[in-house]
Write a protein that binds this DNA or RNA. Structure first.
Length: 115
DNA sequence: CTCTTGACGCCGG
DNA sequence: TCCGGCGCCAAGA
């Protein structure tokens, strides 16, 4: 298994910052990482989740349509329900629970990455 | 080097 | 709503 590079670290740090019960899409994570200064994309985030997701609350990252990614849908459904998220089949209320880092939160993430 | 393969996403039909 | 088509991008074959 490959080891995480700086871009992976940035992605993982963002996902780690998502509070329980809140959600983002792969694309949202990518946007935030871009704001942090690295180039990124939804597909790139998905790859990092596939490789290193178990190090972070990966289940809070869902598809843009509010659907759970097929390969991990079963586990995600259980973990999300455990933190109070209403799961309807493969659908979750992304619009209602979407998380965006505040400027200060963003600064904190930047700080944590500066190691 | 080319071609395929995804925990993706937007647009049309 | 549910596909199909594309664009995207890095990893493997």
């Amino acid at each position: 298994m490959r080891s995480p590079n700086p871009l992976d670290e940035a992605i993982l740090e963002v996902v780690r910052s998502v509070p329980a019960g809140r959600l983002l899409s792969y694309g949202d994570v990518a946007e935030i990482v871009v704001d942090l200064g690295s180039g990124c994309s939804a597909r790139r985030v998905a790859r990092t989740m596939a490789d290193f997701g178990d190090e972070v609350p990966w289940w809070r990252v869902v598809q843009a349509a509010g659907t759970l990614a097929e390969p991990v849908a079963f586990q995600a459904r259980r973990l999300l329900a455990a933190e109070g998220v209403a799961v309807d089949g493969r659908l979750v209320p992304l619009e209602r629970l979407r998380w965006r880092p505040s400027p200060t939160e963003l600064a904190l993430i930047r700080e944590r990455l500066r190691q």
